[in-house]
């Protein structure tokens, strides 16, 4: 196979199905977000801020071994079923090839077919959450106990605008309930962290979030 062919094949669709759908939606809605201007870390939209959550869940890309118990533990606790596609912590989508998907140089990129770095994505419980600002139904509110930004299933109509708005691809419309899902912090004891066999998932207090995220980004950048 020639190099040109390889490039053609590799780059046809380097994103997940959810990201693909999201980008289609963006185009249709004419509401594309310029990702380059987003802060690397917890994102802030222009609009109103909310009371901070107690903390956020973060996955250590060095300790994560990609067993994905977190995904089924998440949906067992929150949904009573096994459903990684809607898990609020997303490891599977980056498992084989990292965030960028398979590139020409995949053997040295992130992921299990690369340098073994597994990048789990989690909700940042943003100060001014794009998901809340995007929701036309006012269906995302701040949980009284944990401060998590949570979806009110009675109000949610499954339009998917929160999924489109989130720069971390966390909210996901459950195709079986047609309601969106996002991290609830599990009433203060996140099931993903509790069940992680390598302690790679931590529920981190807000004041420590920034330096942990910077460390994480450095580890990913370095790979």
């Amino acid at each position: 196979m020639t190099k040109d062919n390889e490039e053609e094949n590799f780059m046809q669709r380097p994103t997940t199905r959810r990201e693909f759908l999201k980008k289609s939606f963006e185009g249709a809605a004419g509401a594309a977000v310029s990702f380059s201007i987003l802060n690397l870390f917890t994102d802030s939209a222009e609009a109103k801020g909310f009371e901070l959550a107690d903390g956020i869940v973060i996955v250590d890309p060095v300790k994560c071994t990609g067993c994905r118990r977190c995904e089924t533990n998440c949906t067992a606790f929150n949904d009573g079923k096994a459903h990684p596609y809607i898990s609020r912590i997303k490891v599977g989508q980056n498992y084989n090839f990292g965030k960028s998907g398979p590139t020409i140089n995949y053997q040295n990129g992130n992921g299990h077919l690369g340098d073994f770095t597994i990048i789990g994505e989690t909700c940042r419980q943003c100060e001014s959450p794009r998901c809340i600002n995007a929701c036309p139904m006012d269906a995302i509110h701040v949980d009284e106990k944990t401060g998590a930004r949570v979806i009110n299933k009675d109000k949610c109509v499954g339009c998917g605008r929160c999924a489109v708005a989130c720069p971390y691809d966390v909210p996901t419309v459950d195709p079986e309930t047609e309601k969106s899902t996002k991290c609830t912090l599990c009433e203060g004891e996140p099931a993903c962290a509790a069940g992680c066999p390598t302690g790679a998932i931590r529920y981190i207090a807000w004041e420590d979030v920034e330096h942990v995220l910077i460390e994480r980004e450095n580890l990913i950048e370095n790979n």
Partner: peptide, 23 residues
């Protein structure tokens, strides 16, 4: 185009065509 390739490149190519989360 995949015929003749090793398993690693085949896996990467199929995931490239389907989406990175493909198994």
């Amino acid at each position: 185009k995949l015929w003749g390739q090793g398993i690693f490149d085949t896996t990467a190519n199929v995931a490239g065509m389907m989406g990175k989360e493909a198994q």
